[in-house]
Design a protein around this nucleic acid. Sequence first.
DNA 1: CAAATCCAGTGCTTTGAAACGCATCGCTAA
DNA 2: TTAGCGATGCGTTTCAAAGCACTGGATTTG
Lengths: 299, 299
Amino acid sequence: MRFKALDLNLLVALDVLLDEQSVTRAAERLNVSQPAMSAALSRLREYFGEPLFVLHGKRMIPTAAALRMQLPLKELLQDVDVLVTETTHFDPATSDRRFRIATSDFLLAVVFPALAQRLHKIAPGITMDCIQPSELTTQLMDQGELDLFITPEQQVSPDHPAELLFEERYVVVGWAGNPMFSGGKITEEDFFRAGHVVVEIGRQARTSFAETHLRTSNQERRIEMKVSSFLIAPEMVVNTMKLTVMHQRLARLFANRLEIAIAEVPFDFPAMREMIQYHQTRVNDTGLRWLIDEIKQLG
Amino acid sequence: MRFKALDLNLLVALDVLLDEQSVTRAAERLNVSQPAMSAALSRLREYFGEPLFVLHGKRMIPTAAALRMQLPLKELLQDVDVLVTETTHFDPATSDRRFRIATSDFLLAVVFPALAQRLHKIAPGITMDCIQPSELTTQLMDQGELDLFITPEQQVSPDHPAELLFEERYVVVGWAGNPMFSGGKITEEDFFRAGHVVVEIGRQARTSFAETHLRTSNQERRIEMKVSSFLIAPEMVVNTMKLTVMHQRLARLFANRLEIAIAEVPFDFPAMREMIQYHQTRVNDTGLRWLIDEIKQLG
DNA sequence: CAAATCCAGTGCTTTGAAACGCATCGCTAA
DNA sequence: TTAGCGATGCGTTTCAAAGCACTGGATTTG
């Protein structure tokens, strides 16, 4: 029952070895002991009649033959993944699948609590790994290391399918005691006179959708504070005269907890289109489809 | 050390099951007992949460999900094959590889005995499966079921690399007692007056290179006999006035055994270009390269 | 209609590959 | 020198998978 006398499972060992270039770390990643991993490597060596890795100082240097396999092997395992997850019958109630999702803390705050609650009921076995989007996200997506990428339309990768999750309007948020908000709305003049709190994520100064848009407008604002999370910004305006522009849903969420006032943006401001994106090869992944639809229902 | 909790070796079982649509036959093909195969199937079922095959009378009917996997799975295993044989270090002295070769009995007779002899010395573990070329050969090649296809230039598949093995001239062969050959050569007039033995292989009347060429010439011959093997034709001319056009090397081989005379074709006749062809994905297969070079040396 | 066949699935036992823990050795780099 | 890492040895353990014998359903045959 072997394929050409090769235990195909050894290929996953080889893949991880090529990634880690270390027997010990590969062993850790696969949850086996170091000797077990070493044995797997020696089986691979025997099969291929090739050292595959040579010890050089503390590093395991892959041989040319091993390196040649790296990419095709990754693709191969990716293909297996696709083949297998596509046909695996997905039953939310019993599945113990782990989804890896890249999403902003804005979404984490406004839709994921409800999602978690719902999944707890209808899919208790399912777990989610949420990571912050960064410059590497698209790369992760390409490698199939990511199941879902939820992001404003501007950031979607052109190589993968994307669907509209929802449209989100922006509002101006300030302290409830700020006289600017006395009429229930604020003026454009007030807006640009006030100090602002803006959100910038990551070292690369990935500005949020709202920021990007505001900067392209010709008016100048005084940015008094930059924070790295959408969830912090509203905290910063309380008891000050500062303003911040944020997602309407998030503002409403905080309205219950903080002494904040909400007003419409006093000039034309586009809505943000939040997209949900998945790997191109996962079109037929029923489990993923299910999750997307769940998220959409809550979006 | 598993890939997503799946024993990858089960995929080969699934592949064979899809091919055979029978647990028993699949078991035979993989040299395991029928219950072992049945157990493998049930493991697959459990993993996919899918029946995969349903028993209907005596047949195992694959479900839609199983059918969807058939092709991708085949391709996948083909990829594994390529990946693995490319990097497997090939040592003729110890290799026990089996090569599958499609070639005419002409070549079998003139180069393979010497090849077999040589391999016996330098590569005792290697075995060769030689099959007759037919309409299905190209298909076999496409599916990667064939390592080498040796054939006249006219029959090579455009989809795969082909290299020139040798050029082969044709000669006229007749009985040694045939007066036509008295001068060491025969005349064009004699040639067309005589009765001929021609070779046609397969039911589809796949004519040999020489036949195809002769037919396009405007002169008529009297075909007194058709045989299905290049090796039989010379036998048929002995003690008769019949002629046959055949490969020079083969004629020389038979000259030692039969009472035959050899003469040049008494008119312009092109040489045949014998090509050796292998699957496009096997360009880097060192073992195959080695065998090709061995054959070329003897060609 | 009964008998014979065929074939997938099941229960039980056996086995063997591989993992583990632990120790050790040899090597290299800091 | 010390620390880190890979390979190796050894006895133990484990558990998946194989084999064998059998069941039961369905089809074909006499």
